[in-house]
Design a binder for these strands. Structure first.
Length: 475
DNA sequence: AATGCCGGGTG
DNA sequence: CACCCGGCATT
């Protein structure tokens, strides 16, 4: 031992502690740590899985819960994924589905309300429900009519269809037991929809009205995704796996952006209006933004659109450049959805909150960014810089500095590169590989030891010297 | 085998 | 506390 120690000492020898340091905060060091434990494999709870257990925490609430259950039953036993998830993440994927649903309903409702009597409306709602639940069915129908259209369009179609059918058919809704269920659901729907102007019946909930901030904020960044290809939409196939989720999420956004899509041409002009532009959306009780966060190891990129994130993953991480539109679904594993409550409402729940607040670094970030989705990682930057060379300030969270153990020295050496060099994007180097490199390569980021070597141990940050988590090159 | 760092020990 | 290091988890 001693020998060893001495040896070390010697190496340090002359310098002793060259690092005076300002004010070391011993424990601060752990900040980054949580990551190790928390980091969850890129595997997103598969959409399927997502369906299975929903978080009720959502604002949308009542209706949602109900639906979820049903889905679980009908839909898919699949849900194979274990979902290690920490609650926060988990919530994400689910959310989108809910959102979507709600949206649909809303639209539908408003739409219908204008034309149909309550009864009808109910039926309609129920119908909607069915559609959602029975994925297969839906798919089927859809195909029959027009697969080329986006899902939403399809839904629209469905709706219309339904409506007409309703009209034709005698008002008898009590027909079967199943209807009962539906009824309930429908009722709930109504409740939730209460905001809608026309609706009279249900007790209105004052609560969430709110401004429709919901999307407005988030949407800005369309830039990336703007391309207008909604990944899922195009490749209808994606839906195949019985996991509606991905598509849904996209749907939720549609309303605002609805980029190019051929469907415009469709007669639905009016309908589309209803769906997207209508004032209704603003009323939407639940104002939340859905963002998609890249789970790739060191990338915390957050985009407001599924398509965007997918593209990001595809190009940046997966290294697939050519087929921008095409997605085999693999991207799904590398991003997760996070919901932000803009306005919040009582429930607000911090659904995703967990991510950032407490932890800090790794999980890239804080919800608040919502506004500027693009911000975070600057994908471009990452791209450009080589793994090692990254001098850029890059990530916000990275900046956080190493107060903890030392920090300080910033000796010449490091200085050259800029203090925040850590970053670690080594991952990028092996983009093509992709595959399942989910687990974070622990060592990816070079730490003091590697960077300076044992010889220059004095240059290490104190944390490293003490065998603590490196504070200088945080991952 | 090399690293990174937690948990715990020492002064 | 500051400083270290055994030892485990990861690569």
């Amino acid at each position: 031992m001693q020998a060893r120690r001495l040896a070390k000492r010697s190496s340090l020898g002359s310098r002793r502690r060259s690092v005076p340091l300002a004010a070391p905060a011993p424990d601060g060091g752990r900040a980054p740590k949580p990551e190790s434990g928390c980091w969850r494999p890129p595997r997103r709870e598969g959409s399927a899985a997502a369906l299975e257990e929903e978080e009720d925490e959502d604002v949308v609430v009542e209706v949602e819960e109900e639906e979820d259950e049903e889905e679980g039953g009908l839909g898919s036993p699949p849900a194979p994924l274990p979902i290690p998830a920490k609650g926060s993440l988990k919530a994400g994927s689910i959310k989108r589905e809910m959102t979507f649903t709600t949206f649909q309903q809303d639209d539908l409702k408003s739409d219908i309300s204008q034309k149909l009597p309550d009864q009808q409306f109910l039926l309609l709602a129920m119908r909607e429900e069915d559609l959602k639940t029975a994925d297969t069915k839906k798919t089927n129908r859809i195909h029959e009519h027009e697969k080329e259209n986006t899902r939403s369009v399809c839904l629209l179609e469905q709706k219309r269809k339904v409506v007409s059918s309703n009209i034709d058919v005698p008002p008898a809704r009590k027909s079967s037991e199943e209807l009962d269920m539906d009824k309930v659901t429908a009722a709930m729907v109504l409740t939730s929809l209460s905001t809608s102007p026309l609706v009279h019946s249900p007790p209105v909930r004052p609560n969430e009205s709110l401004n429709g901030s919901w999307k407005e904020g988030g949407f800005v960044p369309s830039s990336t995704s703007s391309s207008g290809y909604w990944s899922w939409s195009a490749p209808s196939d994606q839906s195949n796996p019985s996991t509606p989720s991905p598509p849904l999420s996209a749907d939720s956004f549609k309303p605002f952006r609805m980029p190019s899509q051929p469907d415009d041409s469709i007669d639905e002009a009016e309908t589309s209006n209803l769906l997207f532009d209508e004032p209704i959306p603003r009323k939407r009780k639940n104002s939340m933004k859905v963002m998609f966060k890249c789970l790739w190891k060191n990338c915390g990129k957050v985009l407001s659109t599924a398509a965007g994130i997918q593209k990001h993953i595809r190009t940046i991480h997966l290294g697939r450049v050519g087929e921008s539109d095409y997605s085999d679904g693999e991207e799904d594993f590398y991003y997760t959805e996070i919901r932000l409550n803009t306005d919040s409402v009582a429930d607000g729940l911090s659904s995703l909150s967990p991510v950032s607040p407490s932890l800090g670094s790794p999980p890239p970030f804080p919800t608040q960014d919502a506004n500027r989705p693009e911000t975070s990682c600057a994908k471009t930057e990452t791209k450009l810089m080589t793994p090692l060379s990254r001098s850029a300030p890059t990530n916000l969270y990275l900046v956080h500095t190493d107060h903890a153990y030392q920090v300080s020295p910033t000796h010449n050496r490091p200085a050259g590169t800029g203090e925040s060099k850590q970053q670690t994007h080594t991952v990028l180097s092996s983009p093509p590989r992709v595959s399942f490199g989910l687990r974070k390569p622990r060592g990816e980021g070079k730490k003091c030891r590697k960077v300076y070597g044992m010889e220059n141990r004095d240059m290490w940050c104190t944390a490293c010297r003490w065998k603590k988590a490196c504070q200088r090159f945080v991952d």
